[in-house]
Structures are given as C-alpha cells and as structure tokens.
C-alpha cells in the first residue's frame, strides 16, 4: 500500500525533532523565557525547517500533481479571523505551560511514559471537542 510509504517522512520528521532538541520541553520553555536564561535554538529550528520546505516545494513548481496521487492545494487565501486568533492564543498558552506542541508530544510517545500519554490523551480530547463543538477547521 502506498500509505505505508508515509512512514518515511514521518520518521524523518520525528528524527528531526529529536536532533533539534525540541522534544525536550525544558529547551522549548528556554526559548519562550525571554526574560530568563534565553536559548534561541528554537528559532534556528524554525528557520531551517521553513527554508528547506520553501526551497524543496519550489522545485515542484513545474509539476501539475503530486507523485502518489491527490492534488496540490490552491495558494493560501483568506485573512485572519477571530477563530484563528482565539485558537492560536489558547494553543500558545498550553504550549508555554507544558513546553510541548503536537509534533514533539507525539514523538515523545516513544518513551512510553504516563505523563506524555496524559498530555497526548488530553490533546486528542481537546481536538475532538473542538471539532464537535465548533466544526472542523478549513
């Protein structure tokens, strides 16, 4: 099955999170703690990730369709609304509290530890609740 191939980018993504150090909540909070002992590493992760995504997807410009089927999305459109702002604010508060966003939380499941399971379980419950109460995002 073609779906199985997606294990590969998944593994590269997880390995990248591990190499970058972003799986450590202390390192993430170290970046968010501007008034304390600041660790700018997360900014370097973002720059590396955004630059490589930008460059590699640019190489695909000539293609009309992805390699394994489906279609490329239309160029981004739309402007920020209240839902986007409220959601991103709530996400930022949770991220600052725990030092975990969805990617590192999922990769940390590899440790098979209860605190991580509790976070991921609560995160999935929050996602489920949001979809039920407010409808799916665009």
């Amino acid at each position: 099955m073609r779906a199985t191939l997606f294990v590969l980018p998944g593994a590269l993504f997880g390995a990248g999170l591990a190499v970058s150090g972003m799986v450590d909540p202390a390192k993430v909070v170290g970046f968010l703690d501007l008034a304390g002992a600041w660790d700018p590493s997360l900014a370097f992760v973002m720059v590396g990730a955004m630059a490589s995504f930008w460059f590699l997807t640019r190489l695909l410009r000539g293609r009309t369709a992805p390699f394994l089927g489906g279609s490329f999305p239309p160029p981004p459109s739309g402007s920020p609304d209240r839902r986007l702002l409220l959601g991103s604010a709530l996400f930022g508060i949770g991220w600052g509290r725990a030092g975990l966003c969805p990617g590192p939380a999922i990769t940390n499941l590899a440790h098979l530890e209860l605190p991580i399971l509790a976070f991921v379980g609560a995160m999935l419950a929050g996602m489920f609740a949001a979809q039920r109460l407010f409808g799916a995002d665009r």
């Binding site: 959601g87 725990a98 969805p102 419950a125």
Partner: peptide, 15 residues
C-alpha cells in the same frame, strides 16, 4: 499537563 494538552488540542483545531 492535562490542562495544557486540552488547550493545545482545542487551540490548534480552532486556529
């Protein structure tokens, strides 16, 4: 952790 997880889940779907 549970509170933050709920906020991250809810917030990322709203946002």
């Amino acid at each position: 952790l549970v509170g933050a997880g709920l906020l991250v889940g809810l917030g990322t779907r709203l946002g």
